[in-house]
Write a protein that binds this DNA or RNA. Structure first.
Lengths: 251, 251
DNA sequence: ACAAAAGTGTTAGGCTTACACCCATGC
DNA sequence: GCATGGGTGTAAGCCTAACACTTTTGT
């Protein structure tokens, strides 16, 4: 950490960061990957800084890969947060203390920061969450029960979810968040958690099939209680074509 | 300009700017306010820098007010452009030359810049466009015939229009772009230019009236050729309430 | 057998689409 | 009067919303 503070000023673009809202879907819940900050009870979005000559999207990809161990992650920039009061001077000083140094006036790290929000959609089971230098845990938290978060990270997470909801007919939500094979009820739960409301089972199924973006695999998911549901997978070509003009219909 | 370059480094946040896509509606065309750069034939979006302790939204508002003479402008941040290659070193050096100084290595102005795009909706007739220090003209250009623009400004303008189109059912497009009193055909032309396609006159009218967001003023617009159309104005309260959940319907 | 989950079907009503007809105005 | 733009109306078809019935599976 101490070394990082020394080199940061020459390596990174000043006063600029990226924060990632990483969505995953597990046990019928939409979840976000959060880091628990060392020495506090607060949580944070995975984030990082932008190198001086680096594309901002790449900075986000770096963060994503480091926290999840995944490559080729689907991500979208959704908003830039630039309130001058969004830093927490107390916290900054605390971090300096922990690194065993005195806070230097006008240090790169102590200035005002503007952060660019990205959201990512990943397949839950494939990720291997790992904490970074300043955190001691990395966990999935349900969007319905987000813990206390540092700075404006709660606002960032909320805005990401709003954006996801707004773009639901234009982004490959299902394809990126679900495993290759999935059942219709699973897809429905996903839509329900994103939209935050219940949908009619039968109408949902008819509508989804009408889009023509699903392939019926003919198999059934065995093992569960009750009647075994069919397995589907996305016809990626048709799915993407349909998303371009937007899936029709209001939810 | 020379003085600006001297003071910029201490006044402004490094490597960060805002660019505004200002939309206006006039003579049945959707237009964007552009600046013609001095000593070149290229055009640019009105833009500016972010002061060290200024909210990024305020920086955009400053730009807007300076270029249009208007206050209380409707504006939305829509995307941040962070390609490291988005600067134009040639142009930077030219600006230095024109200010009568030698380009200093590592000067504030010569570093890589990240820009935050905002779009604004204003009532055409109320604006008083005026150029800034580095431009010698300020004109409205139709979105259908945008001239050559510097850097990635064309991309920024296009993305703004895409966003506007995407959000058409959720933003007070009509209320902000049209004068207080307007006719149904005028409102339709506005929708048509934003959407980039023709709409059926009769269906448009029925749908708009069904929303219940218009007040029929009972008057007619006299003077024009042909039958005099009725004048309407927005019922702002109902309009805003309707926008919150989104105007229903696909265009 | 029973509860719970999943597959399939039906119908009324609303919205979209595609039209036809009449009115007003300037040339 | 005629071309053009504007106001009003109607019918077919599609989509949505609401709801009933049957099938499968573990207990």
């Amino acid at each position: 950490m101490s070394e990082f503070l020394d080199k940061a000023a020459e390596k990174y673009h000043p006063g600029l960061s990226v924060d990632c809202v990483i969505f995953g879907f597990h046990e019928n819940e939409l979840k976000v990957l959060l880091l628990k900050m060392k020495h506090t009870s607060k949580w944070a979005l995975p984030g990082g800084f932008v190198e001086k000559n680096e594309h901002i999207d790449l900075a986000a990809i770096r963060v994503l890969e480091n926290r999840t161990g995944l490559k080729d992650i689907f991500l979208k920039q959704f908003y830039t947060f630039g309130d001058p009061d969004r830093h927490d001077h107390e916290m900054d000083l605390e971090l300096f203390k922990q690194s065993g140094r005195d806070p230097v006036k006008d240090h790169w790290f102590l200035q005002r920061f503007i952060t660019m929000g990205y959201y990512a959609l990943i397949e839950f089971s494939k990720a291997s969450p790992r904490p970074d230098d300043i955190s001691d845990a990395c966990e999935w938290k349900s969007v319905d029960e987000l813990p206390d978060m540092i700075l404006d990270h709660r606002e960032i997470a909320d805005k990401a979810l709003d954006t996801l909801r707004f773009q639901i007919n234009y982004q490959p939500i299902g394809h990126k968040l679900l495993p290759v094979k999935f059942t219709m009820p699973e897809l429905q739960r996903l839509y329900e958690t994103i939209l935050g409301k219940e949908l009619d089972r039968r109408n949902f199924q008819r509508k989804m099939l009408a889009y023509g973006i699903l392939k019926d695999l003919g198999e059934r998911r065995k093992g569960g209680a009750h009647k075994a549901p069919y397995l589907y997978s996305f016809d990626v070509k048709k799915y993407n074509a349909a998303l371009k003009i937007g899936l029709k219909g209001s939810w």
